[in-house]
Design a protein around this nucleic acid. Structure first.
Lengths: 144, 144
DNA sequence: CAGGATCCTAAACGATACTG
DNA sequence: CAGTATCGTTTAGGATCCTG
């Protein structure tokens, strides 16, 4: 045992090497890679849907809330803050009362959202196919 | 108020219309659409990484566990069961002792995994750019 | 209107022990 | 080896109330 409690090999992205020289291949499978965090934010339950909603057009808070079915105020605020902190979303608060806040995608946010949207499109197109190809559950499983 | 406690408009995919005539556009934003469930499975924390691991080659349980850094036995088993139930993954248990179980992608699982891999690749290529473009946290936030 | 603060429940997760 | 069962912890998530 060493002095540090490493849980696996270090990721190249935090190995101390100069960033400009790094090449990443399959680093997501590495537990310690910061790309894991990005992945989790972008694939989070509400993050995916918010990105899609904002890809269509800029929206204000309550509009996103209405667009993304089922999201609570709290989770929407939290999701938007995370996406903003990652630099995927711009937040512009108009200096008026009552408050008016507009959300939009940053350039890199738009890139990410486009990728997410591609994947979402695939799911929407294939959902029926997936549901019908699904192995049937047994009675026991269905009751569960 | 009606007799049913609907939380939003029905999704076309469970509206009772014949499946073959349905067209889906933006149905993921609808709370009641079954595609939401597929999305959650495919974008789940470990689901993404398992699909990527299996896209490279077929693997047995312990091999996936070693490949996907940080996944626990329990979560891997659970994730594989979900992906199998959705029809994305094949499970073949060799009739030997000690047990030997091979996992592989189904055709539709391979399609899905390819899409996931595309997105993952984008993240890996852009992680550095994302991290450096991130708005800096304040001292207060950093301590938090 | 856009949230922040609070409280609470449910689900996800991980570690460990056990079994065919 | 490939799980299952159990337990305890952590996080996600929702509901409600409150404020500039």
């Amino acid at each position: 045992m060493t002095d540090t409690a490493e849980t696996g090999p270090r990721c190249m992205l935090n190995s101390g090497a100069p960033l400009s020289e790094l090449i990443q291949t399959g680093e997501l499978l590495n537990q310690n890679c910061p790309s894991r965090e990005i992945l989790r934010h972008l694939t989070s339950r509400w993050g995916v849907l918010v990105l899609i909603a904002l890809l269509e057009k800029d929206r204000r808070f309550s509009e996103i809330r209405r667009t993304v079915g089922g999201v609570s105020e709290k989770m929407l605020a939290q999701t938007l803050q995370t996406l903003e902190a990652d630099g995927f979303v711009n937040r512009y608060s108009h200096p008026v009362v009552p408050p008016h806040v507009d959300y939009s995608l940053t350039p890199i946010g738009r890139e990410a959202a486009t990728k997410v949207r591609d994947f979402a499109d695939w799911i929407e197109v294939n959902t029926i196919r997936i549901l019908s190809a699904r192995p049937h559950q047994s009675q026991a499983e269905a009751v569960e």
